[in-house]
Amino acid sequence: MIQLDHITWNVSGRTILEGVTVAIPANTYAVLMGSTGCGKTTLLEILCGLRQPTSGRVSLDGVDVTDLEPRERGIGYVPQDLALFPGLRVREQIGFAPKLRGMAPEELNQRVNRLSEQFGIAHLLDRLPDMLSGGEKQRVALARALAARPKLLLLDEPLSALDESMRAEAVSLLQRVQQEHSLTVLHVTHSSSEAAALGTLHLRMVAGRLEVESKG
């Protein structure tokens, strides 16, 4: 469960987020909408610890994580540009987090193979990011985030770079991933159709404040 308690974010005397308070139950697929520049990405960055809020607290499963570093929060983050690591092959991207935690090579290979098969990218394991299409990159970024076994997945407009035909496929992939991994997902999007297809909890950011629109 994600609990945001009166989160405020000020920058250069401007208030971007103002007293954002919301509770997102475990295993929920929440979608967050709002106009460009309204603070959606900032909110995700505060959640995963990349920014410290000016005030307010962040709790995950009842534990206050506001002062914890990003690596201690158990959150998977897929930014809008996907941010694949330049110079690392798909196999190394997916195995990045498990290897960092000292996983044995055999177990690491198993996890990479299992995830790559699940995401249909097993044939791409030896490719570099430059040799991948937009859809392939998106799958690699998701597999990389899930390889760390997060409880919570934050997605920042992950489908924005995909064309219409690939988007429908990606939507069903995200639904499947959320159910199979029992994840709590917070997905930022501008697309109403994407939000309608995926969201069980609909949030909207208006003038730095968060409103709950509906619960599925």
């Binding site: 960055e45 995963c48 610890g49 990349l50 570093e69 990003p70 690596r71 929060r73 959150i75 998977g76 983050y77 897929v78 930014p79 540009d81 941010a83 694949l84 690591f85 330049p86 110079g87 690392l88 990045f96 987090a97 960092l100 935690r101 990389r144 985030a145 760390a148």
Partner: peptide
């Protein structure tokens, strides 16, 4: 010229800032 985003993602994947520099930023900056 290098985006800081991959390093941010590395932090969420378990890296310390030093590890993000070593494993992500430096290979990209070679």
């Amino acid at each position: 010229h290098l985006s800081a985003r991959p390093e941010d993602v590395a932090l969420t994947l378990g890296c310390t800032r030093f590890q993000a520099l070593w494993h992500v930023a430096l290979p990209a900056a070679r």
